[in-house]
């Protein structure tokens, strides 16, 4: 079977109500319906699953790893963006 006949799909699974869908992996399938079935068989074998999302991998727009410095490095020196400069009163408890 050729790659063209079975494009790549990204699989997102929501394990429980109240949680968000999480990316769990990818797989090859002929079309969306077959991808959904394959995801059920490959990624939900060992537990409760509430929902599966399938997305064509070609629909994912990804950042370029070679631009990592430009994209993400500048934030490393901006510690004031972290909410660590506040005194949280004891009465507030866990935030």
């Amino acid at each position: 079977m050729t790659e063209a006949a079975t494009p790549l799909w990204e699989v997102f699974v929501r394990p429980r109500n109240g949680l968000a869908h999480r990316h769990v992996g990818s797989l090859h399938a002929h079309d969306a319906q077959m991808a959904l079935q394959a995801a059920r068989d490959v990624y939900t074998r060992r537990g409760e699953t509430q929902s599966i999302w399938i997305v064509p991998s070609t629909a994912i727009v990804a950042s370029d790893p070679s631009e990592k410095d430009m994209m993400f490095e500048p934030t490393a020196t901006k510690i004031y963006r972290h909410p660590t400069f506040y005194e949280v009163p004891d009465e507030v408890g866990h935030m």
Binding site: M1, Q37, A38, D41, V42, R45
Partner: peptide, 12 residues
């Protein structure tokens, strides 16, 4: 099986 995905599906 023809693909890894289907191999697991058939085993299931």
């Amino acid at each position: 099986a023809p693909t890894l995905e289907e191999d697991i599906a058939l085993a299931n």
